[in-house]
Design a binder for these strands. Structure first.
Lengths: 239, 239
DNA sequence: TCAAAAGTGTTATGATTACACCCATGA
DNA sequence: TCATGGGTGTAATCATAACACTTTTGA
């Protein structure tokens, strides 16, 4: 007899090709109009029908947990090659009401320009919420989300990961606004410019903004090659 | 019919009061004679009999994962109220040869003066290894261990956790040696003193070392109360 | 009196901060 | 010509690093 279990998100039956008692939940960050946002999905069925939660799912028996997170992210957003890192495992005994389930939290940073929500990609509705307007979420998802924000704050100071939230080509002020929003502190424009340019991690694209009603700013992109070379030589990004 | 499964460490049968497919593995750090050390246990049975691995075990169905790690740590070392933090989950599909098992890594910092290995506490032999003389370990335990060292290096700069590896009363030079060993870099004694004392996180115990064949140093202890008050006020430990 | 570690003082350098100011451009 | 953001200059302050030096103590 083949064992069956209920999908925590959709309430649908899952085959036993997935692991029992372990799920993955993913905090997907986006950045638009100076605001940090998070993608939430609406529960299709079950007791918590209509409530918002983090996108997630089960881990297949033959896939690693990172692979599972990548797969789930692709299933939800249609995107690949996204910045994705594990947060940690969350495992309070009563976190999931329909049985003992431990979840592994991940967070992803996506460039909203590339991303276009495809209706029907998932069974559920997916909507962006501003970071300061997050509703009450199912299970322990608020806890996971809060942890992810703290983690993002720590990581953004240790490594140049913020770029993943911006378009390929960006201006220094966009980058500064991103840092201000993530860290929640105002910054000084001249000082920010010098500090960042001084790290030599940005490539001057010799291009300018278009269609802006003020002096057009230079466009830059992140120089991942140089960054890798520098870190190999012992360079440590710090902000 | 009650389900049975094999204990990954001892090869013994476990009752179904524990979760299947999820374990906990713990990296226990100690510090002695200027060297960072890790406690490893010898496998009692199974294919990998005689090989060294991280202490670990199963999670009970009605306990949280942090609780499980605390319980396992106590079962192994007899110690309670130990500094313990989760690393992350490790879940490559083939990491555990006897089936698909995901493990949650933890790391603990213990004061070796308080700790005394009690033979018989565990089924297996437990021995301290210097950090630069770690043997090949079972499963993916070397990966977990390497991650834990990186994590310790990051964390020790962000928060005053190093004290957990020292005796209650310590000298500034002991503290500096600890930082040097963890971070792997030499430091300047006068500068270290000033920097640390300047943070006002140490209580001068008005006591001195005894039985040393040179000028006796002042003893200090970490002022956890002040640290908490300062962090509440927005203070950020940085090293 | 020597070795070994405790502990203080001082200077140079570089990063950070705070702020004043000019520039370019479209409405 | 005004608003808006782009971009440069500079002086004060602070943290860090480097290293010379004195002190204490037991062997």
């Amino acid at each position: 007899m083949k064992k069956k279990l209920i999908n925590q998100e959709t309430g649908e039956l899952e085959s036993s090709s997935v692991m029992k008692s372990i799920t993955i939940d993913c905090v997907i960050f986006g950045f638009q109009n100076g605001s940090l946002e998070i993608l939430l999905v609406k529960h299709g069925r079950g007791i918590r029908k209509g409530d918002w939660g983090l996108p997630g799912g089960w881990i297949k028996k033959n896939e690693g947990i990172d692979e599972a997170a990548i797969r789930l992210l692709k299933e939800l957003t249609g995107l690949q090659n996204i910045f994705l890192e594990q947060l940690k495992a969350f495992g309070k005994p009563d976190r999931f009401p329909m049985g003992r389930v431990i979840t592994i939290g991940y967070y992803a940073l996506i460039n909203k320009e590339k991303y276009n929500i495809k209706a029907g990609f998932t069974a559920s509705e997916a909507v962006w919420f501003k970071i300061d307007k997050i509703p009450g979420l199912i299970y322990d998802h608020n806890e996971i989300l809060n942890f992810s924000i703290q983690q993002l704050r720590r990581r953004v100071k240790q490594a140049p990961i913020g770029f993943n939230l911006l378009p390929e080509k960006f201006t220094l002020l966009q980058l500064m606004k991103l840092y201000e929003e993530i860290l929640g502190i105002p910054m000084d424009k001249p000082n920010f410019r010098r500090k960042f340019l001084g790290m030599k991690l940005l490539i001057d694209l010799k291009e300018k903004q278009k269609d802006v009603s003020h002096r057009a700013a230079k466009l830059y992109r992140f120089d991942n090659n140089t960054y890798k070379k520098l870190t190999d030589k012992g360079f440590n990004f710090e902000f």
